[in-house]
Each structure stands twice: as C-alpha cells, then as structure tokens.
C-alpha cells in the first residue's frame, strides 16, 4: 500500500511537469491550432536562460523568471511573426518548419555548450517529509505553480475580454474580425503568452533537472500527447491530461518495466486519439475547428 502510494505521488509530481509544459503548448496548439514542435526547445532555452541569470547576474534561480519569461515571449513573438504567420493554415508545413527549428535550436545549444551538461544550484532540492514519503521541494513547487497556472489560464480564457477574443478568433476568424477583434494582434499576443509560459516552465525545471540540449525533445511528444488527450484548447484537459500521463508512466515504470513506460502511454494516447479524437475533456468536433483553410 505504501509502495503504491509512493508510486502515485511520484506520478502526480511528474504529471505536474507534463501539465506545466502542456499548459503553454495548449495556448499555441490547443487554442490557436498552430503546430509548434519547437515548444520544448523554448522550455530548454528557458532552462539555459535561468542558468545564465544565476551564473552571471547572481540572482536566485526562481527569481530569474522576471527576466526569462519576458525574454521568451519576445522569442515567441519573433517565431510567430517570421515562421508561423507566413505558414498560417498549412499545418504540414508548420510541422516541417518547427521540426527544423527544433533540430536547429537543439544543435545550436549543443554547439555552444560543446555537449557539457550544467546544473542550476538551488536551495529547494532538499526533500521534505510528508507522512511517510519524502518529496523534493522543487517538484512540489512545480506542481503547485502548474495548478495555479491552470486556474489562471482557465479564468483568463473564459472570463476576460482578451481571453474571449482569443477563443472567438479560433472558432470563426471572419466573424470575430467583423466584431472588431484584431486577429493579427490576438495571434501574436497568444503565441507570445504560450512562449512565456514555456519560459516559466524552464525556470521551474532548471533546478530539478540537469540541463541538456535534448531535454526539450524529450518533453515535446509528451506535451502534444497531453494536449490532444485532454482535448484541444481545454485547460482542464491539459492539466488533468498531464497528471494522467505522469501517473500512467510512473505505474507502468514501476509495475511493468521501466523500458516500456513511455510505450504504454503512447499506445494509450493513440487509442484515445482514434476512439475519441476530441480528447477526454474536449468538445466533440473541436479538433476540426481552426484547421480548415480560413481567409
């Protein structure tokens, strides 16, 4: 019993990491329906940005969010302006271009660091005792922030005017524009927000993981799986989907075989995708919205 509980807690905390990354991707893929395979690289850049802040500015790891998140939103804005916007309504070319960007960024960082791995020091690495379990404080923080972020984005998208404008644009671009929504600005803004969330994710992950250029590639397929699994554009879906994938991975790794843990939830993902393309929390038919050519 204690064993299962410990596996569950590990899974939930890992799920927090997936949820955190998926919430940013959900803005870009789920809400805007843009395929950005380089999203994991934005998280990776956020992690290296944190390292630079800690090393050269001497500020605490978590405080670097005030520099890293705005910097990443600028990167996101440029990415949207120069790559995503020209490829609007061409999903296959978006896949192709952003996969190229993934390879480019991954190897640019590899070339710059010459393959050396870095770690970001922080005081949060110490495990705390909860009941009979030891839990890393940094992981607990990731989980807490992911939860807050999920609540925050859900409120933003549902209750505020800019959030409603974002949803209106993806559902029917022409009508939304006729209602006075500036489509170009909404797209740039949402994309930059998604990138800033990736930056926040990078800051939170930096003390918990050792830095490698390939870390984004490890997360990206999981994040896409979570967004599709949860339901495109659904914040609750991205959050609970992330937790579900984390828990499945943790249990499969412990009770079946560590080598198969990812294969098991990939199979689960493909099965859900085929049986219910709208995802667990998504509206039926939501997967078709925004992929039709729009003028």
């Amino acid at each position: 019993m204690h064993e299962a509980l410990s596996v569950l807690v590990t899974g939930v905390l890992l799920g927090g990491v997936y949820a955190l990354i998926s919430l940013g991707l959900n803005m870009i893929f789920g809400v805007l329906r843009m395929i950005n395979f380089a999203h994991g690289e934005l998280v990776m850049l956020g992690m290296y940005g944190t390292y630079l802040c800690v090393t050269y500015l001497g500020i605490p790891a978590y405080a670097s969010v005030v520099i890293v998140a705005p910097a990443l939103s600028v990167v996101g804005y440029a990415l949207h302006r120069f790559i995503m916007a020209p490829l609007h309504s061409q999903p296959n070319m978006q896949i192709f271009a952003t996969f190229g960007l993934l390879i480019l960024l991954e190897n640019a960082v590899l070339a710059l660091t010459r393959g050396e791995t870095y770690t970001v020091p922080s005081s949060m690495g110490i495990p705390v005792e909860i009941g009979e379990l030891y839990v890393g404080l940094d992981r607990l923080l990731i989980f807490a922030i992911a939860t807050l972020l999920a609540v925050g984005t859900a409120i933003f998208l549902r209750k505020t005017m800019p959030g409603k404008a974002v949803r209106a644009i993806t559902q029917d671009r022409t009508s939304a524009q006729l209602m006075g929504v500036n489509a170009k600005r909404v797209f740039s803004f949402t994309f930059a927000t998604g990138a800033a969330i990736a930056g926040l994710g990078g800051v939170l992950l930096a003390p918990a993981y050792s830095l490698s250029p390939y870390i984004g590639g490890n997360f990206i397929l999981a994040a896409f799986a979570v967004v599709v699994l949860g339901g495109l554009g659904s914040v609750a879906g991205a959050y609970f989907g992330g937790l579900l994938v984390g828990i499945v991975e943790s249990f499969a790794g412990y009770y079946i075989d560590p080598a198969l843990k990812q294969a098991i939830w990939f199979v689960l993902f493909v099965v859900v995708l085929v049986l219910r393309p709208s995802g667990l929390f998504g509206q039926v038919g939501a997967e078709e919205v925004g992929l039709r050519p729009q003028h």
């Binding site: 790559i83 271009a97 190229g100 390879i103 190897n107």
Partner: peptide, 9 residues
Amino acid sequence: GAVMILAAL
C-alpha cells in the same frame, strides 16, 4: 534545421 525552415517557407 535551417534548410528545413527555409524550404518550408
């Protein structure tokens, strides 16, 4: 990677 991006664009 750069060739892929340019080719797509």
